[in-house]
Design a protein around this nucleic acid. Structure first.
Lengths: 135, 135
DNA sequence: TATTGTTATACTCTATAACTATA
DNA sequence: TATAGTTATAGAGTATAACAATA
């Protein structure tokens, strides 16, 4: 097994653990991954439904339901856009903004596997991953 | 942003890209991630439904449907287990074994981000990830 | 009584296609 | 005609609860 293959295997293993961790923690907030992800994206700035579909990499028809579920919980609201009456913008409510902060805390928390590394290893890992994504 | 946080962000980014890549490639084989994952796990050795549920980290009731879909496509078969007539073992058919090989080729292929690294970086990444998962 | 697998039910995520109201 | 959003529909993944067969 090459170093690249073994690195990938370990990468995948850590990723699966993470998926389980934040899945559980988001569920404790009553959120699925998709809803949490949408909440993150809407929070950066108000988004049209179409924009959100592109950011979520899903068909536009799904965004109706995602927005419905977020809106039903009072986390976002649909607003008319200026200049084009077809467009609706999704914007966070105060409650949505508050919950989004908790989502960010969960999603941005480094995995235990990374936290367990020495400071030097964390820096080396960051530098290698920067090169990997082509910085 | 700490090195651990940035490493996590980059890690997550590579993971999302990978998810999209193998999602597409598995779809070309007519498989979802869950079905492909189940096929991988069954292939190592015949598994009882309960075992498979544990390995997939899902409720046992889901495995009935997963097994149904794989069986409908002739990829696995249910076999009686010896010694306990409640238990059914899932085993690969020859067609399932063949498709599983293609699944493994897709899932074990290192991400482009890792392949693009120098040999030294690949080795360093592997070693750091080994330490991260606690080897 | 407890366990294995199944069924029934319900919710979410996903895509495609058809529809509406705008542009 | 084309686009933004919706609705209808269908399949897959998920969980809970109730059930049959077996232990």
């Amino acid at each position: 097994m090459t170093p690249a293959h073994e690195a990938h295997r370990l990468f995948f293993e850590i990723g699966m653990r993470e998926r389980a961790r934040y899945g559980q923690e988001l569920a404790a907030l009553g959120l699925t991954f998709q809803l949490a992800h949408a909440l993150r994206l809407v929070g950066d700035e108000p988004r049209s439904m179409k924009e959100l579909a592109e950011l979520l990499v899903c068909d536009a028809s799904n965004v109706t339901g995602i927005a419905d579920r977020l809106e039903a919980r009072g986390l976002v609201e649909r607003r008319p856009a200026e200049g084009d009456r077809r467009v609706k913008l999704l914007a966070l409510t105060p409650a949505g903004d508050e919950l989004r902060e908790q989502v960010l805390a969960i999603m941005l928390e480094p995995p235990a596997a990374i936290r367990s590394l020495s400071r030097d290893d964390q820096v080396a890992l960051r530098d290698i991953l920067r090169r990997a994504v082509g910085d």
